[in-house]
Write a protein that binds this DNA or RNA. Structure first.
Lengths: 165, 165
DNA sequence: TTGGAATGTCAACAAGTCTGACGTAGTTTT
DNA sequence: AAAACTACGTCAGACTTGTTGACATTCCAA
C-alpha cells in the first residue's frame, strides 16, 4: 500500500506505524485472553464457554438468537457449548413465556461463581493495564477499539453498554 | 465515546467500565481480523497462514524457532502451516549458512504478493479506525495495548519494532 | 387449516490447536 | 572420537471450536 511519508499531522499513519498497531493488537489479545484460558485448563471448558458465560451474565434472560448474533457463530456451534453448560448446571434454559420457541438463558449459582472467577481474572489484567497507561490513554484506547468494530457489531456493543450502564 | 459520568480520575476503573473495555476488545478483534479472513475464504489458507506470512514478511530470514516463539504455537502446529506454504511456493526455506540445522524463511514473489493483499486489507481497516479516532487516541490505544501484553511477548514485540523501524 | 418462517437440536465433518514419540542432521562438550 | 545436546521435521492421536445439512417444534399469517 505504501502511504508514503505524508505530512506531519498524518505521519502516524505510515505503513510502519500501522503494522506496529496490527502487531500490538495481536500480541495484546493474547495477553488479554491468557488468564481465563489458563483458569479453564483441564476443566473441559474453553474460550467459547467463557464467552457464552460472559454475555449471559451480562444480559440475563437473553435468548439464543440474540446471543448468537453477539458471538458471531452458528447456532449449531453455540448449541454444543450451551448443551454442556446446561448439562453441568452452569446455565439454565427457560422456555419463553410469550414465544415458546425461544429459550431464555440464565446463569445458575454455580455458573455465576465460575463466571465471576473468569471475569475477575480478566478484569484484573485489564485494570492493571489501565493503571499503567492512565486515564487519557484509556479513553483513546476505547475510541480506537470502537472504530475498529464492524458497524453491525458496534450495534450489539452499544446495546450491551446501555443495558449494563 | 461518552465516558458518561466520570469526573474524578478513578471512576474509569469500575467493574462496569472494565467490562466494557473487555467487550470492546472482543468485538474490535473480530473487526480487525475479518478482512483477511474473508480474503482467504476458499483458498485453503486460514488465519494461521496469514500470521506466518505476516511475520516472515516482517523479518525475512527469521528461523523457525524464532517464529515459533512469536506465534506462541507448537512446532507441530506451525509445521503444518509452513509445509503447505512451502509446497505452494509462497515461502522459501533456506538452510542456515552459519548453522546448517537452522532453516531461514523468506517469502517468494508469489508469497509477497499474497501477504501484500492481506496486509493492505488489514492496514486499510486500521488506518480508517486511526483516522476516525485521531492521533491522541492512537497514542493511548498503543499504550494500553502494550500494557496488556504478557511481558515475554512484549520482548518479541519490541524486537520487531526495532527491526522494522 | 395449512404452509412458511423462526427457533433450537442432533449428527457429521474440517481446521487448527495440543501432547507425545521418534528420526535426522549438525553442533558442542568431554 | 564419542557422547550429549540442539534445530527441525514428521507421524499419530486427541480436543476445541468452527462449519453444513437435516430435522422437530412452534408460531403466525394467508
Amino acid at each position: 500500500m505504501s502511504e508514503g511519508q505524508v505530512g506531519d499531522s498524518l505521519l502516524f499513519l505510515t505503513d510502519e506505524q500501522l503494522r506496529q498497531g496490527i502487531e500490538a493488537m495481536f500480541f495484546a489479545y493474547r495477553g488479554f485472553t491468557a488468564g481465563p484460558d489458563h483458569l479453564l485448563e483441564g476443566t473441559g471448558y474453553g474460550r467459547a464457554h467463557h464467552r457464552a458465560l460472559h454475555f449471559i451474565a451480562r444480559a440475563p434472560g437473553m435468548n439464543v438468537n440474540r446471543l448468537l448474533a453477539i458471538l458471531g457463530v452458528t447456532k449449531q456451534s453455540l448449541n454444543r457449548v450451551l448443551r454442556t453448560l446446561i448439562a453441568d448446571e452452569m446455565v439454565e434454559s427457560r422456555v419463553g413465556r410469550a414465544d415458546k420457541r425461544e429459550r431464555h438463558l440464565y446463569l445458575t449459582e454455580k455458573g455465576a461463581a465460575l463466571e465471576g472467577q473468569l471475569s475477575d481474572a480478566q478484569r484484573k489484567w485489564m485494570r492493571d493495564a489501565y493503571r499503567k497507561a492512565g486515564p487519557d490513554a484509556v479513553a483513546g484506547f476505547r475510541q480506537v477499539l470502537e472504530a475498529l468494530m464492524d458497524s453491525d457489531i458496534r450495534k450489539s456493543y452499544n446495546a450491551l453498554r446501555e443495558a449494563g450502564a
